[in-house]
Simulated assay, not measured.
Amino acid sequence: TSPTATRPGPTTLEAYQRDGLVVQRALLDPGTYIEPMQTQIRSVIDLARAEAGLGPTTGDAFDAGLPELLDRDRGRAGKVYDAVRKLPAFFNIVNAPPIWSLVKTLLDTELPGWFAAGSGVRMDHPGEDRHLSPWHQDYQAHLCSEDMVVVWIPLVPVDETAGPVVFCPGSHRDGMLPVYLDDPLNEARVGARAMEFVGASERAAGYEQRLIDSGPGDVLAFHGLVLHRSSPNRSTRTRWSMQLRYFNFLDPAARRRGWVGGVNAGVDLSDIHPELIRTRPS
């Protein structure tokens, strides 16, 4: 890690238990972890551009060739979204020792696990608000263990203009929200919008709503029950971020269920938590 990296310790765990959210500045050395990911994404974009009849990317930014690809062949640009989570550099970040150290600290466990099917890369394009996620909790969609930690890693600078995630610190202590389960297995591939969290907006209104600026090398880690939502990207560049989900093998409920994953693993929430399912009023 960078010599200036923030090291997880007792105060980190205390803040996490209080807020359900911690920010670790410069936890990942950009040259070791972030830049290889950016370079490999650029290669994937160029391969997709070639298939779309476009030449190699020009410009210094790793994603400089993406806007033209989006204009030429939106479907092929969507394949980039699916492909980049398969890159070697992606797994290098997943397995980065600073990440595992942080996760072990926050989960307070000697045996953390990584939920592969629940991890990936988001590409949030400027002005495309239809893909924004409303207020939600991550646990209900991903399961594994009820103390799940989500590790959010920006691949580009993210300020208020670029649309950072909005968090409600401390909201994890209220427990699980019930849901309207509109698409139990997310067959429409709409992510967090496959289920609607009952009363989420009303609950969020009672909390501080915190936006956190971040940049490559920074890591945001939050509890799977912290309320959060997307905010719109009003910049001129796609917001690239990684979402990695880690769980606790030693969690008693997870052990009883055999550490099953959520919707991305083909598991219907109603089979695991029937008490959370609500029927929409007619």
Rank of each mutant, 00 (worst) to 15 (best):
Pro112Ser: 13
Leu211Thr: 11
Arg210Cys: 03
Pro126Gln: 11
Gly127Ala: 06
Gln209Asp: 07
Val179Leu: 09
Asp129Lys: 06
Val219Ala: 03
Pro154His: 13
Trp100Arg: 15
Ile93Asn: 05
Gly127Phe: 05
Leu211Lys: 14
Glu208Phe: 01
Gln140Trp: 02
Asn95Ala: 14
Asn95Trp: 10
Phe167Asn: 04
Gly199Asp: 09
Val94Thr: 11
Gly191Gln: 10
Ile212Asn: 04
Ala221Asn: 03
Val166Gly: 02
Gln137Ala: 08
Val151Lys: 06
Leu185Gln: 10
Thr105Trp: 09
Thr105His: 13
Pro126Val: 10
Asp138Tyr: 03
Val198Trp: 01
Glu196Pro: 00
Leu227Val: 07
His223Tyr: 04
Glu208Thr: 11
Pro178Gln: 09
Gly118Thr: 03
Ala204His: 01
Gly224Ile: 04
Phe167Tyr: 15
Glu146Met: 12
Phe222Tyr: 12
Asn92Trp: 08
Ser133Ala: 15
Gly215Tyr: 02
Gly224Tyr: 01
His136Val: 07
Tyr180Met: 08
Ser119Pro: 02
Gly206Cys: 07
Gly127Met: 06
Asn95Arg: 14
Asp213Thr: 11
Ala117Ile: 01
Ala141Phe: 09
Glu208Lys: 12
Gly113Tyr: 01
His131Pro: 00
Val165Ile: 15
Asp108Ala: 15
Arg229Phe: 00
Ser214Thr: 12
Phe197Ile: 01
Gly118Leu: 11
Val198Cys: 01
Gly215Asn: 03
